[in-house]
Each structure stands twice: as structure tokens, then as C-alpha cells.
Design a binder for these strands. Structure first.
Length: 459
DNA sequence: TTAGGGTTAG
């Protein structure tokens, strides 16, 4: 008869196989175990569910749950948390919420992980209000929040555009009995940087260093990006050197950030040196790195080499994505080669990717700059979503050909929808109306923009 | 369960 010891061994074996992604083999071991009288327990099933969620398919994970129930093994809190993490990873907020409710219905009490996972999923999928509600439910439950809960909350504040609340939560951590840890600082650094608060981000980085917490690869990469964007290129490279000297020598994210920064400064040869260094280190080059290099070639108007990289991507067994094609579309648009740009849009479609907002925006910008405003307008009308880039590019194009009244209509749409556009676009429309003898219309437009609070939207 | 990379306007 199979005892607890044998089940423990079975679980260790299943754990290693799942970790190595050998799920078929793991399933065979389970079957063999059953044949020998060693019945899988809740840990065995939870391990399999986690592996199916992570490496295969969410539906397959549910099949394991059915098998588990048929075998008379009751799902526990870990089963639910694992499924919720899977739902979160697959961006399925309703599924995640359903699992959370279902667990209570089945007499399983949610723990801190359950609350954290649900909050994270809801924030990530764009439901901050529901996520806040979960946080408040957690506080009124018997489950205590942890530093991970607060890290998730701070990240959620940033993701939902509430940087001020994120900073407040960070500053109040000690009041709640916690001290910021590495992930807290990394979340703050990244959140502040993404919210455009680069000065505050740099201060947080300094504060972290002074607190004695050692940065990791994520800290260095975010800090570098922040420094590069703040036009402190040399300081950004110093951070990269420090990162290398601290032994983070094979981090593909960091290399990718540096390659992109070099490319933006037109240092294509240095970007190539980086790639060579990566190959020398035995590092795999992933699609993001290739995309950064394609961008470097496009930037120096070397479309031939950019296109040649597509073959390399294929040879490396990778598949081009939206970044690859939109970078190429932009490269061709900047050269005024709209036929090749459109060709890349078609390739994108035949590859099963919908031409994205960036590709369309590049097309609009390129067409406007080439004076083909009507063509740009027809593309603009076709677009399902438009953002600040789309409107700014179009406004500039319309102003360039003197169509200030049409531009003024689009500007009012932006004001009404709260879509911010470049300061220069707003100025171009107002100045254009005034200079072409429509001073009264300019005044009316300015008044309407003030009324909509649109003139305060300066970045 | 929480944190990092790659594309577009001026």
C-alpha cells in the first residue's frame, strides 16, 4: 500500500517534471503511480494545474480540476489561487472574479494570495474601481494585507493614472507597519517614470540606494531608461556599467534598453557592438532586441539591412510582431516610400496581425508631411482607435496646407474627448486662423478650448 | 500573488 512518504516522492517527481515542462511524462508518472496504488493528492493536482496554466492552456488546467474532483480530491485554496493566477496571466478578469466567488461558495476561505491575485488581475485588465473594492473588502476581512498587497496597490494606482495616490500609499507604508522593499522601490521607480515624473523617479532611486537596498536587474534597467529619456545618456551608460560590474552581464532586457537608446542617438555601430557582445556572452537575442536593431537601421534610412533582419528573425525561429512591422512602416513612411509602407501593412495582416495604432499613425504623419492630407484623412477615418499622435499629426498636416477650419473642428473633438494633443498643434491651428484673417474664429476656438479645460492639458 | 526591455507626432 502506498503511504504518505510515497505520495511525497510522487509529488517531488511531478514537481521536477512540471518545472522542466515535461507534462506528458508527468501525466504518465501519475498514471503509473495510480496503478501501483499511490494515489495523487491535492498537491499533485495543484502542481499539474499550475504547469498547465503556465505552459499549456487555461482550459487544460480546468480538465485537471475535473479529474481531481472525479478522484474525490477537493480543490483547496492553492487550487483556486493557481487558477486565479492563470486567469490573471491570460487577462481574464471575469474568470478570476468568478473563481474568487466560487471558492467561498465551496467553503474554501480566500487567503492573502487570493486577494492579491484578484486585485492584480483587475488592475491589469483596466478595472481599478473593482480592484479598490477588493482591497477594501480585504481590510474588513480576517485576512491581513502584506507588503505584496501594498506593492500591488501602488502599481495599480500608477496603472490607473493615480500617481499622486501611489506616492501617498508609498509614504504611508510605515504607518501600516511595512518598510519599502526592493519590489516596492522598483514599482515606484517604474511608475513615476511612466507617469512622466522623471525627477521624482530619480529621487526614489537615490533614496533606495541610500536605504541600503541593493538594486537588481529590474532596478538598473528602469533607471537606465529613465536617465536615457531625461537626456542623461552618459549617466544612463554609467548605470549599465555598474550593472555589468555587479554581475548582471546577461540580461536581455538591459541590453535591449541600451541598444534602443543607442539607436535613437544614431549610434547604429555601437548598437551592433552590443549585439556582438550578447552573442559573445552566449546570450540568446530575442525579438525585442531584433526590433530595436531594425529601428536602428530604419533610423539611418538603411531599409535594406532592416529587411534583411527579418530573415535572421525567421532563422532564429522567432516570429515578427506588431513592433517589427510598425517600425518598418514608420521607416518607409519617413522616406516617403508609401508603397513599401503599405506593403508592410499587408504583410502584417497576412501574418495574422492587425495593423496597429502606431503603424497607422506613422502613415498619417508621413502622408501629411508629404502634403497628401486627403489621403491621410481617409486613413484617419478608417481607424478604429485614434490617439494623441493621430490627431497631432493630422492637425499639423491640415495646418501645413492651410485648412485651418477643418483642423479647428478636429481640435474641438479632441477638447471634447479629452485627447491631449501637442502644444505646437494647438498653437498651429490658432495662429493659422489668426494669420489667415479669421481672428474671430481663433478667439472663439480659444474660448471653447478654455471652457473645455483643454488649454490646461499641457504635458 | 507584486517590479524591468523593443515602434509613431514636435
Amino acid at each position: 500500500m502506498c503511504g504518505k512518504f510515497s505520495t511525497l516522492l510522487l509529488n517531488i517527481c511531478i514537481g521536477s517534471l512540471c518545472k522542466a515542462r515535461r507534462l506528458d511524462k508527468a501525466e504518465f508518472v501519475v498514471v503509473d503511480g495510480i496503478r501501483l496504488g499511490c494515489l495523487p493528492d491535492v498537491v499533485t493536482y495543484n502542481t499539474l494545474i499550475a504547469a498547465y496554466c503556465r505552459f499549456v492552456d487555461f482550459d487544460q488546467a480546468y480538465l485537471i480540476v475535473s479529474r481531481m474532483k472525479e478522484a474525490g480530491v477537493k480543490p483547496d485554496v492553492v487550487t483556486y489561487n493557481t487558477l486565479m493566477a492563470g486567469a490573471s496571466r491570460h487577462n481574464l478578469p471575469s474568470q478570476c472574479q468568478y473563481l474568487f466567488q466560487d471558492m467561498s461558495k465551496n467553503g474554501v476561505v480566500p487567503d492573502e494570495w487570493s486577494y492579491n491575485t484578484l486585485m492584480h488581475c483587475l488592475f491589469n485588465c483596466g478595472y481599478p474601481e473593482v480592484a479598490f473594492k477588493i482591497f477594501s473588502d480585504m481590510n474588513s476581512s480576517s485576512v491581513s494585507p502584506s507588503i505584496i498587497t501594498y506593492n500591488t496597490l501602488i502599481n495599480g494606482y500608477f496603472k490607473s493614472g493615480r500617481a499622486v495616490n501611489a506616492v501617498m500609499a508609498f509614504r504611508r507604508l510605515q504607518k501600516f507597519g511595512f518598510s519599502p522593499e526592493l519590489v516596492t522601490y522598483n514599482t515606484m521607480l517604474h511608475g513615476l517614470f511612466k507617469s512622466g515624473k522623471r525627477g521624482q523617479a530619480r529621487r526614489i532611486y537615490k533614496e533606495m540606494r541610500e536605504s541600503g537596498i541593493a538594486p537588481n536587474a529590474a532596478t538598473y534597467t528602469t533607471a537606465m531608461k529613465c536617465w536615457f529619456r531625461s537626456r542623461n545618456f552618459e549617466d544612463g551608460l554609467d548605470i549599465f556599467s555598474e550593472m555589468m560590474s555587479r554581475g548582471y552581464t546577461s540580461d536581455v532586457f538591459a541590453y535591449c534598453t541600451v541598444i534602443s537608446a543607442l539607436a535613437k542617438r544614431g549610434k547604429t555601430e555601437d548598437a551592433r557592438v552590443c549585439i556582438r557582445q550578447m552573442l559573445k556572452n552566449g546570450q540568446g537575442i530575442d525579438l525585442a532586441c531584433y526590433n530595436a536593431l531594425i529601428y536602428a537601421y530604419c533610423k539611418e534610412k538603411n531599409m535594406n539591412d532592416a529587411l534583411l533582419l527579418l530573415n535572421e528573425i525567421e532563422e532564429a525561429g522567432l516570429e515578427c510582431d506588431g513592433y517589427t512591422y510598425s517600425t518598418l512602416v514608420d521607416g518607409f513612411c519617413k522616406l516617403g516610400d508609401f508603397s513599401s509602407a503599405m506593403n508592410q501593412m499587408r504583410v502584417m495582416e497576412t501574418s495574422g496581425l492587425n495593423p496597429n495604432l502606431v503603424a497607422y499613425n506613422s502613415l498619417i504623419d508621413g502622408l501629411c508631411k508629404a502634403g497628401m492630407v486627403d489621403h491621410a484623412l481617409s486613413i484617419f477615418k478608417m481607424m478604429r482607435t485614434r490617439d494623441s499622435f493621430s490627431y497631432s499629426a493630422l492637425l499639423h498636416g491640415l495646418c501645413k496646407v492651410g485648412r485651418f477650419h477643418v483642423a479647428s473642428k478636429f481640435l474641438l473633438i479632441c477638447a471634447r474627448k479629452g485627447i491631449n494633443v501637442l502644444k505646437s498643434s494647438k498653437r498651429a491651428v490658432l495662429r493659422g486662423l489668426r494669420c489667415s484673417g479669421f481672428g474671430r474664429d481663433a478667439k472663439k476656438l480659444k474660448a471653447a478650448m478654455w471652457k473645455a479645460g483643454f488649454l490646461h492639458y499641457e504635458k
